[in-house]
């Protein structure tokens, strides 16, 4: 059932190496999120798994079987594309049933499956509409419906929510997570939004320039980033990274401290800083401060913090929340 393994999978377009060699084991029923900045190769890696891109070298095992050379439709995977890629001239019904029709499934069975998928996705009343007569969210659902009916071992999502507005995105996020719970299928989900990654994933795979930087649960990545890149990428607002003199005191080339792990005091502290800007979000206040030798830093103050720009404050990092990195950006662990 639905395990997916990459064995040193490599991808190059001509001379340009996009994925130098990725190894990864995805367990059955797991929700894995690929996250990384734009252009880091997330889509490419996902498409390699889907079979839409050939591997330059290495292997892909699905369910324990070598699928490196298998056609996309033979891999037991369904894909949901960023632009949905619905067939514009087919009705919703036609779109959802197309894969089954191509697989030569009997009509009655197709009908039943489409009806069931449509019911789960609240699409029943739209079955005879064309994609262009649907809203973005409904189109997204059709794309998911098309993936579901094939009853795949695994689902591949390539930034499926990036074309939706913020409110709808939160909704669809919950629906996809619910669907994952109900189906118990393996899911790989690509996004560049680390909040999406943190909220949805069982495990997150952080990619940087085609390399897998770190694999772990959201909290593992949050609490124990292996590298400067992961530290800077996971968490919102970003971790404060300080190098130079202040870091040397901690025997590190660079230290990192998250905005939520800095204590604020008006009297004394490790570093002194001057408030330059305050963002009031209601539940929290984010202070952007100028901390002299430490550079610009972001600090979270719980609740409504009455801060005047220019005011002087003192910051104290929670000692066991300080992340230390060597000069290659690798984490130093005690």
């Amino acid at each position: 059932m639905g395990t997916i393994s990459l064995k040193n999978a490599r991808k190059a377009f001509g001379d340009v190496v996009i994925i130098p060699g990725a190894s990864l084991d995805i367990r059955n029923g797991e929700f894995v999120v690929f996250v990384g900045p734009s252009g880091c190769g997330k889509s490419t890696l996902l498409r390699m798994i889907a079979g839409l891109e050939d591997l330059t070298s290495g292997a892909i095992l699905i369910d324990g079987k070598d699928m490196t050379e298998a056609a996309p439709s033979k891999r037991g995977l369904s894909m949901v594309f960023q632009s949905y890629a619905l067939y514009p001239h087919m009705s919703v019904r036609g779109n959802i049933s197309f894969g089954l029709k191509m697989a030569g499934m009997p009509k009655a069975e197709i009908e039943a499956k489409v009806a069931k998928a449509a019911a789960t996705l609240n699409l029943t009343e739209y079955l005879d509409r064309k994609p262009r007569q649907l809203s973005g969210g409904q189109r997204q659902r059709v794309a998911i419906g098309r993936a579901i009916v094939r009853n795949p071992e695994g689902f591949l999502f390539d930034e499926p929510l990036s074309n939706l507005d913020a409110a709808l995105r939160v909704n669809m996020r919950l629906e996809i997570m619910q669907m994952h719970k109900d189906l118990g299928a393996t899911m790989i989900y690509v996004t560049h939004d680390q909040v999406e990654a943190m909220t949805m994933a069982d495990r997150i795979v952080v990619l940087n320039r085609g390399n897998i930087e770190q694999v772990g649960s959201p909290l593992e990545l949050y609490n124990r980033p292996d590298s400067l890149f992961v530290a800077g990428f996971i968490g919102s607002p970003k971790m404060n990274l300080i190098s130079g003199k202040p870091a040397e005191k901690f025997d590190a080339h660079t230290i990192g401290i998250r905005p939520e792990h800095l204590g604020i005091s008006l009297k004394d502290g490790t570093w002194s800083a001057k408030i330059s800007l305050a963002e009031h979000l209601g539940a929290d206040t984010f202070l952007h401060v100028d901390a002299g030798p430490c550079g610009m830093m972001t600090v979270r103050a719980a609740g409504e913090y009455d801060a005047a720009p220019g005011a002087k404050i003192f910051l104290t990092p929670e000692p066991d929340r300080i992340h230390r990195f060597d000069k290659d950006g690798r984490a130093i662990r005690k």
């Binding site: 889907a50 079979g51 839409l52 056609a71 996309p72 439709s73 033979k74 995977l77 369904s78 894909m79 594309f81 960023q82 632009s83 890629a85 619905l86 067939y87 197309f98 894969g99 191509m102 697989a103 098309r146 094939r150």
Partner: peptide, 15 residues
């Protein structure tokens, strides 16, 4: 013709 549509058809196993 949309490239992703071709790929969707490929995923659907269209001969």
């Amino acid at each position: 013709l949309d490239e992703e549509q071709k790929e969707a058809a490929e995923m659907d196993g269209t001969p």
